[in-house]
Design a binder for these strands. Structure first.
Lengths: 186, 186
DNA sequence: GCGATTGGTATCGTAACGATACTAAAGAGG
DNA sequence: CCTCTTTAGTATCGTTACGATACCAATCGC
């Protein structure tokens, strides 16, 4: 009412609410599901309370609490960082991975998969553009894929390298998202 | 990991999280913002705790609580239904409308407005299709616009009529969303 | 009338969340 | 080395969200 409504944004609000509601499945909470999904998609440098904090856009206190509840539930384990003893590394347990198989978001994926290819492509382009615009406006990290980063050095036979962290990267690593990622065209 | 990822859905998850984070502005909570937005867009039959419950997809106990907090904050008023004394009618106060002018979602609208028209149109079509698919799958109410309803009877000079509720509708009414709405092509 | 349904509220327990205060390890400058 | 600062994370508090359950009062069906 107060401003010119943008239909796409209103639809987005509604879908956001549906996603949030789905997050209450299996006795878990939305933030817990988001944490599990993140841990499944993030590389080893990013699977920390700090990385999760940046991803969720929450405060570290809140995230610490969420991680503790997941640890209590046996879905996540903590271990120390080999070099930096302040840092904690998070990992999904088998139970955590099993839980992801019961993610209600799968229903949304199924609905999306049923869309005509052209519509889905348009949706994807629009979402990508809108997300990029928002991240640029708020200065949040993009959390892009490792191999699309300006610090990524491609090697031969799946032996890559991160020039920022000076760490080797496998082919699998290079397909995961990273807190430190900075797009090549920056 | 566990399933074929659909990029559009992953982008949607991320945007949903951004929207949720914006919901903590101005000392309000996400659910409170969503309630305010709903009350600004819903017709008089739908501005009830029950209507809000259906819109939010929450339980009535939760919604009752959210409404009470908004009432305490002076953003919403309650009044009795003229005929059914069980029912409560909700209305935004001037302070409630003023609060909506400070809605952080405006930033998202601004970003969306900056998108190329073709991209925005594709985004809108995709979101609409995806939302329709989800609502169909879960049997939730569409909350469409009054005038697109099969119970809507168009009159002359802005004097319309709802055949379901047997109530007159103004031109303004006909542009608002309604709990009872059922699309014509049903 | 009377039982079932409907619209809401009350209360409990868990978790989210921001805010603030805190601890401990790592780094920086001298 | 030894402080000062920064960084990674935890602890605790108060408010709210949320589902679940129980409850109340008005209305409807017959």
């Amino acid at each position: 009412m107060t401003e010119a409504p943008i239909p796409a944004v209103e639809l987005l609000e509604r879908l956001a609410r549906l996603i949030a509601n789905d997050g209450h499945a299996q006795r878990l909470k939305p933030a817990q599901w988001e944490a599990l999904r993140y841990l499944a998609r993030a590389n080893r440098f990013s699977r920390t309370p700090g990385g999760l904090t940046a991803w969720l856009g929450a405060t570290k206190g809140t995230v610490s609490q969420t991680v503790m509840s997941l640890e209590r539930a046996g879905l996540v384990t903590k271990s120390g960082h080999p070099a930096d003893r302040r840092s904690v590394r998070l990992a999904l347990t088998p139970a955590g991975r099993a839980m992801l198989a019961r993610d209600e978001i799968a229903a949304l994926r199924h609905s999306a998969a049923g869309l005509p290819a052209a519509v889905r492509a348009g949706l994807e382009d629009g979402l990508r553009a809108l997300l990029a615009a928002r991240l640029a406006a708020t200065g949040q990290r993009p959390f892009g894929i490792c191999r699309d980063c300006r610090h990524f050095a491609r090697g031969s036979g799946g032996d890559h390298f991160c020039r920022l962290l000076e760490e080797p990267l496998s082919d699998d690593d290079s397909r995961l998202i990273c807190v430190e990622q900075e797009p090549v065209a920056a």
